[in-house]
């Protein structure tokens, strides 16, 4: 990333392109990431949205976009991107629009669609090699309907459909690996609380063609049960504890872009969120806490066994 124009935080955009006044919750980690992403992708974009929290970014007649937007449905936003991209290519090839009028197709989806209902459409679209960017704001549950567990919910988290003493019994699906198995042109994990890392990745993705994944962890005060003011701190803790490795896939290789030198204990991340409160109160659930730490450690051990991280 030596050629990046984002060498330090001071190089980040000072003015913001995404309109204010949207209906997202105060402290929304997804919006924190999206407005940074939009600053760099810019308005020569058409966002194709899958049903989720961010459906409500645009409510007639209000839109935060200076570029374009198309609401599709929960399952098929990548197919919407396919239709728009194909149509733009047709119009370009026939000279009905000029290259300056061209747009980048960007899918915007929550984890509920990305990890589940929309996975088939995404898989098909990557396999067809579509030139598009896929942005997933991952708040680890069906947030727009009140945080029921989704394919992205982490082990042990309380959701409105896993309220028991041990929380969600399943495990978070590795969507990054699912994408990488399709050999896309680019895939990266980001979080809004690490704006410099995010900016460099969006810049890199923007300069490429083909299917590109931006998977953004989206700390969610409403669904994860924490004070909105803590949104950025929780994002940072996700990175520092190793729960959310910041990495990218490019040219057939995975690189860790911000591997913590010494990972903080995972409970520092867990104990500040109401969705994990049952792991600490009324008494500590040592077994489950140990399991969660062990999963994080195992994931990093596996990465290290492959010679990673190297950055």
């Amino acid at each position: 990333m030596s050629e990046t124009r984002f060498r330090t935080m001071k190089d980040l955009p000072a003015a913001h392109l995404l309109g204010t006044g949207t209906a997202m919750c105060a402290g929304c980690g997804g919006l924190e990431a999206l407005h940074q992403i939009y600053d760099i992708l810019g308005e020569k974009t058409v966002f194709i949205n899958a049903a989720g929290c961010m459906t409500l970014l645009a409510i007639y007649p209000y839109t935060p976009f200076g570029g374009s937007w198309l609401y599709s449905a929960m399952a098929s936003a990548p197919a919407g991107a396919q239709g728009v991209r194909d149509a733009l290519d047709i119009l370009l090839s026939k000279g009905r629009i000029s290259p300056e009028e061209d747009l980048t197709a960007v899918v915007l989806t929550g984890d509920g669609s990305a990890y589940g209902m929309g996975l088939s459409a995404a898989s098909g679209t990557i396999e067809r090699g579509l030139d598009f960017i896929y942005v997933c704001y991952d708040n680890e549950g069906y947030g727009n309907t009140g945080q029921q567990h989704s394919g992205a919910t982490p082990h042990g988290a309380r959701t409105s459909t896993s309220r028991g003493r041990s929380g969600f019994p399943g495990f978070k699906k590795d969507l990054f690996a699912v994408w990488v198995s399709h050999r896309p042109s680019y895939a990266a994990t980001v979080v809004g609380s690490e704006p410099l890392d995010l900016a460099r990745k969006i810049e890199k993705a923007k300069g490429l063609r083909g299917p590109r994944l931006i998977l953004a962890l989206a700390p969610c005060p409403t669904g994860w049960d924490f004070d909105p003011a803590e949104a950025a701190r929780i994002g940072k803790l996700a990175v520092e504890t190793g729960v959310w490795p910041l990495k990218e896939y490019f040219d057939g290789r995975v690189t860790f872009t911000r591997a913590p030198k010494k990972r903080l204990p995972v409970e520092e991340y867990l104990e500040v969120q109401g969705r994990f409160a049952h792991l600490f109160h009324p008494r500590r659930n040592e077994v489950l806490l140990g399991d969660i730490q062990a999963q994080v450690d195992a994931a990093w051990r596996e990465a290290e066994s492959q010679g990673l991280p190297e950055k």
Partner: peptide, 19 residues
């Protein structure tokens, strides 16, 4: 496409894009 749901989505999206 990989399904009719996606097929109709792409059809509508391309029509909305003006072809």
């Amino acid at each position: 496409l990989e399904s009719e749901h996606s097929m109709v989505t792409a059809a509508g999206a391309a029509a909305a894009a003006g072809v």
